[in-house]
Nucleic acid binder design. Structure first.
Lengths: 309, 309
DNA sequence: TAAATAGTGTCTTTGAGACAGTATAAC
DNA sequence: GTTATACTGTCTCAAAGACACTATTTA
């Protein structure tokens, strides 16, 4: 509590006497959920490649959670906003400037970092993979794209007196290919890194309305509470892709409408009808006079992003 | 940077040697945008009362911004999450437990608090006015409901090379009735407290997409960057009321559909068509057998909230 | 009975879902 | 010609906008 008799001093005088260490302060970090969409290999020469939603993780080279995988991030400095910190981390990790960046949520559960009191202001970034150059992975800072699958696996309801509680269980699977860095052998072993977590969404409905909260119920290999942050980000991405044009941030300069549709499908994790999809996104894109080429079937017109509205 | 050779120590050992004061830390506060909807007086005995959107502000009894009006809030303690801090502030200020609470955004602009490095994790709360008992206003902590009007007043576009910049100017008006506490004179002077701010929304559209940012361009009487936080909250409320049932949190236990429509109208600041409105919200409410009474015209059926989905 | 709100019916418009049908390059 | 994708047309259905019409209470 301030004990100064404020009636008698000016604001300038007050500030000069203000002690900035009256309260214990948390550390504040930003964590970045950086999404991209990449193509996996073609099954045959005429089939289109499949797409996958990917998230960037970094192998921790230090305690805590040494050897586990974490979201890129770091502490916010006194000379920058959380957004600038996120921007800085993003650039350090991917080399990309100018990408879509959105503040997600500030996580402040006690004990989320075993070291000390740390809040995390989480951001989501959407990047076009073709622009990204991952930093060469030295031991302490190995970055990898993980294929992300996030699915609801169970839904239960419980009726208590005066209300209803729903539990939705989601599975988060993250998978990356382990590259054999040094070995230049013929038998290029493609070992996979598999991370898994289970997230429970608890929805309480009673006279006072509806509240929902996420919990990590299982976790193997994902550092801190980052499984929860990723789950939150996927939810936000899925919600926003339906009524905004953010998906365009994941596209290269020119792209086919089928490619765009695949991006929507892989994010929403469900197939969409072609005709309806095209009607919906027609205003988000501009026709070009270019077509795909040598694809083993009818070529497709290329489009560009149309941000005007 | 941590200079410990982490290869040789366990996580437990590492944590015991971790110094928690390596980085400069910000103060973290929560600020609450507490909305309610209240009725103003009837024009005549048969007309329905008008509704107004209100926000709770507190007159600052200390520096900085002494005498100006600020959102309720306070520093987050090491024993609580930001949400718990918000909950606590809300309860201290309004006496209400169990209300709708939603994290809005974390504001971290440098210099937003002249004392020191302070981030604010802002929350929005929606309360039914009938449950609120404002704390008796002692000198240092006078709380008041302000009628809120937030309107777009200008929109300009600027085409630069490689992009388009839109500026949208919004006016935020806050108005409260100054009650004459002690005086019990006949001539009950109803002086008004008028606060005004102008917010500019700058939208930049270029090859990299669309970014938008809010700035306070004029401000009279609103402390800190709280005009911006309020503007942000109104935007969120307007967006969410269209596709969720959060408006129900502003309603008393029983209410008429016209009252609910008025709440939507006052928040969205535009009239809605009755038939379409009723079709849209029919699943959010439950019929009761009760009707309004003595209203000078046909009585109206009362409804209750129906959160089930 | 006049005033004011309550509540319903229905025509139109819009957009999404569903699905079929035609088009076209590469092999 | 076969394969696989590109692209369009249209029927249906559901929700929202617009507006008009009927119903009911109270001073």
């Amino acid at each position: 509590m301030e004990e100064i008799n404020h009636k008698k001093i000016s604001e300038a005088e007050y500030l000069s006497t203000y002690s900035s260490s009256e309260f214990e302060r948390p550390s504040v970090a930003t964590d970045m959920v950086i999404f991209t969409v990449a193509e996996s290999e073609k099954e045959n020469y005429r089939k289109l490649p499949e797409k996958e939603l990917q998230v960037l993780l970094i192998k921790r080279g230090k305690h805590p959670f040494l050897g586990q995988w974490a979201l890129p991030g770091g502490f916010v400095r006194p000379t920058e906003t959380t957004e600038q910190a996120a921007q800085r981390e993003l650039c350090e990790e991917t080399g990309v400037q100018e990408v879509y960046l959105e503040q997600l949520y500030t996580f402040s559960e006690l004990g989320r970092d075993p070291r000390t009191w740390v809040m995390s202001c989480a951001y989501m970034a959407l990047v076009d993979q073709s622009l990204v150059k991952l930093k060469a992975g030295d031991d302490a800072d190995e970055a990898k794209w993980f294929k992300l699958i996030y699915k609801k696996i169970e839904e239960t309801e419980e009726t208590k007196e005066g209300g209803l509680t729903k539990y939705e269980r989601y599975q988060l699977s993250l998978e990356a290919r382990e590259e054999q860095n040094q070995r230049v052998d013929r038998k290029e072993k493609k070992e996979k890194i598999q991370l898994q977590a289970e997230i429970e969404k608890k929805v309480v409905i009673n006279d006072n309305g509806r509240t929902s909260e996420l919990f990590i119920t299982k976790n193997s290999g994902i550092a801190f509470d980052h499984a929860k942050i990723i789950a939150y980000a996927v939810g936000r991405l899925r919600g926003k892709i339906e009524y905004t044009d953010i998906a365009l941030h994941l596209m290269p300069r020119q792209f086919t409408l089928t490619a765009l549709q695949q991006v929507y499908e892989v994010i929403l994790d469900k197939p969409l009808l072609k005709a309806a999809f095209r009607r919906k996104i027609v205003d988000l894109v501009k026709e070009t006079e270019n077509y795909t080429d040598k694809v083993g079937h009818r070529p497709s017109r290329l489009y560009e992003k149309n941000w005007m509205d």
